[in-house]
Design a protein around this nucleic acid. Sequence first.
RNA 1: GCCGGCAUAGCUCAAUCGGUAGAGCAUCUGAUUUGUAAUCAGAAGGUUGUCGGUUCAAGUCCGACUGUCGGCUCCA
Length: 658
Amino acid sequence: MERKSLDQRAQMTDLERLRHSAAHVMATAILRLWPDAQFAAGPPVDDGFYYDVDLKHRITPEDFPAIEAEMKKETKANNIFEKIVVTREQAIKDAESGRLGGLSERPGNPSKFKLGNLEKIPAGEEITYFKNGDFIDLCAGPHVMRTGNVGAFKLTNVASAYYLGDEKNPQLQRIYGTAFKNKTQMDEYFAMLEEAKKRDHRKLGAEMGLYVMDTEYVGPGLPLWLPKGTVIVEELEKLAKETEFAAGYVRVKTPHLAKEKMYKTSGHLPYYAESMFPPMELIEGDEEKRQRELDDEYARLGKEHGEILGLGQKERAARLSEIADRLKAIGEEMGRLGERYYLKAMNCPHHHRIFAAEPRSYRDLPLRLAEYGCCYRYEQSGELFGLMRVRSLNMNDAHIYCTPEQFAAEFNAVNEMYLKYFKIFGFEKYQMRFSTSAPEGLGKKYVDEPALWKQTEDMVRDVLVSSGINYVEVANEAAFYGPKIDVQVWSAIGREFTIATNQVDFAVPKRFGLVYKDRDNTEKTPLCIHRAPLGTHERFIGFLIEHYAGNFPLWLAPEQVRVLTLGEEEPLLNYAKDVVNQLRAQQVRAEGDYGNDPIKAKIANAEKAKVHTMLVIGGRDMEAGNVSVRLHGKGNVGAKPKAEMIADILAAIRERRA
RNA sequence: GCCGGCAUAGCUCAAUCGGUAGAGCAUCUGAUUUGUAAUCAGAAGGUUGUCGGUUCAAGUCCGACUGUCGGCUCCA
């Protein structure tokens, strides 16, 4: 984790100070129970705080009451958070004696993480301790005045975390808690959390019968869309197809797999092989062994090639062409041995090949190829998360090939498409994040094209500024092939996700040798915009479930209308069935509940299923040519002539009313 | 992938110290004929995630695996 700057610290809110102080109080408590505990970092986070601790005893939630009791003693004591300025020499001495992050000196148990933290404090910056009671911690603050200011707290969770967030470092125990000024606020927070849990798409998705994960027969992270979920999938596709058609896109369809050569050309192999499903091999016997040898050599040379390019070593150009020749020869030999097919992890290479399928003129650009393409990514098992992070994903994908002159207008049009969608769905809490490169990453993390980076980043920034979109700029987060804009949203339980993305690519079309013939009769490489405003069905619908808490607007609702009858007389049933048939004839998803349950039970069932519109039909409705309308969550809204109600429903669906 | 928790009927959950696996909802059958959130009765539903171990005896204790949950790492 990055160290907070002094500026950032000065800007900490009162609640953050309080929670940071709560972390010190917790450390104090843990030390009273386990004096040899070593602490690393203990910052405030969005909904509380944590402290990373290295301790032989494995802390479990069963230990929480004891820790909380000690914390209570510390807040009752109402000790002052005393700031102490020390010299670096003194701090190192105290860390070595085990005094830092301790209640006393601990011979033979130096404050190893605090020593590490000390090293990260730049020379010249003031080194400070904060002391409450016997507990002294290396800390830049700020804190509340006294431990008693931490009015209400609760430990919530224990997890593990790598020291400094690096996989290679030892794992520490991360104890999470939350703290508030008083108990009332804390109670409100936990009540809100309970509400949020009810919105969790995994819970609602199962209850509403939208999707299942058949981990036994299909596999983890491979959702099966049930009929009701498929309705939402198809409504979203309809929206995308209409919107994209109007915006001048053309649709394509591509297979779910491709030969190895595709991903060697795109640059995804061998470097990203581990996030792809292993290949299907159409190779036999001895040839397989030879294939492995060639693989190894290919990987080795590929790496060397990348290094030479990255370092910009012009003097090694001869070696480069040697490598290129050898790579070509390997490719040819592999072709003779047999083939390997990979499931696609992205659609761009297939689209690039469609671009390459015909000679292109500047007159053909911009060419906007759209596809709801199904991709497969072998996400790490620990990363799978309901619909939000899966291994098979249907992307609202499109690639726009354009000239540099066309770029600004195209990029802007894509952004406007985002905003149009977000308005339809009523998204309010989202963040547009503009990710740029960093000079030190050129040739390593990013393709080594400083001029193109500057050019495209300026173009994107200009579009953002001139269109007045609210965004934040993050350096050193770009894709390896160009700058991008991600749209971040937060799930019901507060996890952050990229819901949509808009990326510039000035590198991969070149690798595929894509060109168009320009006005001046020269061949030029097009710019490519990758965009997915509706992200993937999986993540987008996962998010929509939580956004609407399962109460979808009429146009998206899996079951739009349910007709509930009062009584079983033949004429009444005919009248009710006629309403359902008229609606279905107009493509409205209407069902009938003609059974003999009491109306209260039928209503309870329909409400529980979150049916958008319920039409109650009894004898008096039939006689008047009416239907009695009840809206999910809103209750009875009264009787209406049948024809009028049907017209209303059709209009609301057509307009995709919220 | 790493650390830890969890896994009982379709769902939500019980089952005392290791001693014959139960309930509500949903499902099915029958009765009930109803005006805005649940009519009554009966039936059916299980190799307690899988495999192995300890024991006279395992849902319960131990181990491995799989899945899942919470984090970490990762996310072109």
